[in-house]
Design a protein around this nucleic acid. Structure first.
Length: 479
DNA sequence: CTATGGCACGGATT
DNA sequence: AATCCGTGCCATAG
């Protein structure tokens, strides 16, 4: 948080303290944002503040030097770092593009040209898929529908409007929509989130096991779901709060109320933590090479292509600004300055945090959840010498893609019970006859996990594992 | 009687 | 101050 007094606007003492407060406040806000939110913020600022401009290139978070294109910093690039030292981290522009592949259950890097989240692309993409299934006479309707999709992949205008415009029955429009909904991304062209979920449920059918009453929950208790009122939802369906939460988790993990956001964005609207799976990651960790002791490379995603900086022309203009505009321009300038500084600080904090995590949780990152070393945010805050709320903000709502390709919420690094749950899963998978919770608890104790029987039950339910007597039935079925 | 889920309490975490 | 988490106790089902 070093201010360089040499920088003009920060020099005057009176202003400086004021700026410091603003600086802190804004850094905090920015830190709490994930890639998507940050993108909105930056685009917003960019459009209303003439002092800001976006140029080709990016900056190195280590030395803060501006680099052309996507090149690594020659000084700080990971090739040049000392062997066995902390992983090198850099902030990267979104040169990578990720798409969610249902089959592998993860995001995968796409090598091709940039995928732009424009609705136009989505429309074309969807139309291509369904072209064969649509009668030529209905093609125009399909095009009309596709071009009326909003950025979430939902239909932004009523069906009646299309019908009237095209002089056809609403039923006919709806028939086309139904075809479209089944294309990828499933649920696209639905009128609202609820409908999208229902379509996805139908298409998934019985392929994927799902909690009972999921459909009713979406159909009848949708407003409870969105508000996370699980107790009420449970009452409505005649099930317990726990069961209701299970349904919500399932929806969060396997469905997406905003079809198009499978490409870009998140589904945070239904439940907060577990749904982060579908989000474009905020941080990417990958291995430098294939060797055993490879260094981990951590990339903190920079949500926008190019480098945000002060427009030098504007700076110039400010010097000879006309009297009338001077004040406003000056304000713009300060605002822009502040934003750039705060952004770089946000990234720096994130970098430091992830660096630490990468080092500490190396085994977890490389070898899976069984090897997590549980840590609290407070501990980490002490080690990094920042306030614990800083960690909280930096962690909340963000995701990281591990070398394995899995996208997990960063908060998972702080999950105290993850390793035990993994061990539990292992026990159940290896079991011969279904073990009761008491027996599982005993086995876990032998492995060094001292937890109560009741807690075993909780973990089981969290992992979606059925109780012993029901597992028996399932074993017979699969046999 | 055993296995398990619901509920609620208290302490830790955020 | 609010939320999360592990646990104990009790009710219920088998």
């Amino acid at each position: 948080m070093a201010f360089r007094p040499s920088q003009g606007t920060f020099q005057r003492t009176g202003v400086r303290t004021k700026l410091t407060t603003a600086h802190l406040a804004q850094t905090m806000t920015l830190l709490g944002m994930n890639a998507l939110e940050l993108l909105e913020k930056i685009e917003g600022e960019l459009s209303k503040n003439p002092a800001l401009e976006l140029v080709e290139g990016r900056h190195c978070p280590n030395c803060n030097r501006r680099l052309p294109g996507n090149a690594l910093c020659p000084k700080c690039s990971y090739q040049g770092s000392a062997q066995g030292e902390e992983p090198i981290v850099f902030v990267s522009p979104p040169e990578h593009n990720y798409t969610y592949t249902g089959s592998t259950g993860r995001y995968e890097d796409i090598e091709t040209d940039a995928f732009s989240p424009d609705t136009e692309d989505l429309a074309t993409y969807v139309l291509q898929q369904i072209a064969a299934e649509i009668a030529p006479a209905d093609r125009e309707i399909a095009v009309h529908i596709a071009s009326s999709l909003d950025k979430d992949g939902l239909l932004s205008i009523p069906i009646m409007e299309i019908a009237r415009y095209r002089h056809v029955d609403p039923e006919r429009v709806y028939a086309v929509i139904q075809v479209m909904q089944r294309a990828d991304p499933v649920g696209v062209a639905s009128a609202n989130e609820q409908e999208a979920l229902l379509v996805q449920l139908d298409v998934l059918g019985t392929q994927v096991p799902r909690p009972e009453l999921t459909r009713q929950a979406v159909e009848e208790g949708f407003h409870f779901l969105t508000k996370k009122q699980f107790t009420e939802l449970g009452r409505l369906l005649g099930i317990s709060k726990n069961e209701a939460e299970k349904i919500a988790n399932f929806i969060g993990e396997s469905l997406n109320p905003y079809p198009a956001r499978a490409f870009w964005g998140n589904t945070r609207h239904i439940s907060s933590d577990t749904t982060q799976v579908y989000q474009r990651p905020d941080v990417i960790m990958r291995c430098a090479d294939d060797s055993e002791d490879t260094r981990l490379i951590v990339e903190v995603m920079w949500p926008i292509r190019g480098l945000l900086r002060i427009n030098p022309d504007f700076k110039q203009a400010l010097a000879e600004a006309p009297e009338a505009k001077a004040d406003k321009w000056k304000a713009d300038m300060e605002q822009a300055n502040l934003l750039v500084k705060c952004l770089s600080q946000r990234n720096h904090t994130l970098v430091r945090l992830m660096q630490k995590l990468a080092k500490q949780q190396r085994n977890f990152i490389l070898d899976g959840p069984a090897h997590i070393h549980p840590i609290t945010r407070v501990q980490l805050a002490e080690e990094l010498d920042v306030h614990e709320s800083t960690i909280s903000r930096a962690v909340s709502g963000k995701t990281v893609q591990l070398p394995s390709g899995h996208i997990i919420p960063i908060s998972q690094f702080f999950d105290r019970s993850l390793h035990i749950r993994t061990a539990l899963k292992g026990i159940v998978e290896a079991e011969d006859t279904p073990l009761s919770d008491t027996k599982i608890a005993k086995l876990l104790k032998e492995q060094g996990h001292k937890i109560a029987r009741r807690t075993v039950a909780k973990y089981r339910s969290m992992e979606g594992i059925l109780p012993a007597h029901l597992r028996k039935v399932q074993a017979k079925q699969t046999a």
